[in-house]
């Protein structure tokens, strides 16, 4: 792990708005080249503020942040040349067409016209917007706009891409489609991605590593599996045909912890990694001449991890507030 190239380095980064709002309270983390790194936390945790500092649009109050080897405060122009961002709010110009928005972005990066056109069509194709390319953006659906935003941010072939809540307010299918694009572009364009989200499933399914952020502080960093392991592992439940007590036998399997007999023939145990241990359990039981009639495995969810670490459930905060934020985004986008 340690030899991997660090492409974003953050040390004690802090932001106080107007001398009063302590939005980010000294966070530190590394992002390695080629990974998808997630900042997971509820609204107001300081995710957007962190992204704004890393993308040089907001000056940190204190601390250090380096992106692509450049300090964001001292060499902002070098950082800007190497990154791209899809902000939380829709930023494309509604009065222009999708293609015009692409070309506008290209010119902001100083990309020559011919090259820009080539890239624009290639990217529009990638996000399935080729047919809508010459329509005004105001006619786009939410999912189309998000896809356009992503395509726009790839026009400069960034090394690092920042995605601030890339699926905020989108329905389930659209969200899954956006995840596909994100995975695809990571593979095709060799990009490092830092994304923020307050959706557990998103962090879980997309990110190589996650930093859980709450009230401006990072509570824990790790891969989704590592974070889940904090809870003490997966739960396996097994039922056998026989009535004999096999608690002893199960406890002797090295990877198994905390065996609990639920009724005459059902046992529940905690194991470190369910997929690896389940076959061992079955094998052991069969060897002893017993018959397995049912086996089920439950993985701990990130939601439980979050609850354990912060004392609150992320899910409580979705619903209502989410809709409110979606409306804000739409209202801001209206003219």
């Amino acid at each position: 792990m340690s030899e991997r190239e660090v492409i974003i380095k953050v040390r004690n980064l802090e932001k106080i708005y107007n001398g009063v709002v302590h939005a980010v309270k000294g966070i530190s983390f590394d992002v390695y080249r080629g990974e998808i790194f997630g900042l997971l936390g509820p609204n107001g945790a300081g995710k957007s503020t962190t992204i704004k500092m890393l993308t040089t649009v907001l000056k940190p109050t204190s601390g250090i942040a380096e992106v692509c080897g450049y300090d964001v405060a001292k060499h902002p122009v070098e950082v800007r040349r190497c990154i791209s961002v899809v902000p939380q709010e829709y930023t494309s110009d509604e009065d222009l067409t999708g293609f015009e928005n692409m070309m506008l972005m290209a010119s902001l990066y100083g990309i020559p016209k011919a090259e820009a056109e080539k890239r624009a069509w290639e990217l529009l194709e990638m996000v399935n917007l080729k047919d809508a390319a010459n329509r005004k953006v105001e006619t786009y659906s939410g999912g189309m706009r998000r896809r356009l935003e992503i395509a726009m941010s790839l026009i400069n072939r960034p090394k690092v891409l920042f995605l601030d809540e890339p699926t905020l307010g989108l329905d389930v299918q659209t969200r899954a489609a956006i995840w596909e694009y994100i995975r695809k572009l990571k593979e095709e364009y060799d990009i490092t991605i830092l994304l923020t989200t307050h959706y557990m499933e998103e962090a879980d399914s997309l990110c190589n590593r996650i930093a859980i952020i709450d009230h401006g502080k990072i509570v824990k960093i790790g891969s989704p599996d590592e974070l889940k392991a904090l809870l003490g592992g997966d739960i396996i439940e097994i039922s056998i045909a026989e009535k004999e007590d096999i608690s002893e036998i199960l406890s002797k399997i090295p990877a198994v912890r905390e065996v609990k007999k639920l009724d005459t023939s059902t046992y529940r145990m905690k194991v470190e990694s369910g997929e690896k241990v389940a076959p061992q359990i079955i094998e052991t039981i069969l060897q002893r001449g017993f018959h397995v009639i049912k086996l089920s495995m439950a993985k701990p969810t990130l939601d439980e991890v979050y609850l354990e670490l912060t004392g609150r459930s992320l899910r409580d905060e979705e619903g209502g507030e989410d809709m409110w934020r979606l409306r804000m985004t739409l209202r801001r986008a209206r003219r």
Binding site: V57, P87, Y90, A333
Partner: peptide
């Protein structure tokens, strides 16, 4: 509209 945030992150 967020457009400013986007252009401020470009060179």
């Amino acid at each position: 509209l967020g457009f400013l945030e986007r252009i401020l992150s470009t060179p």
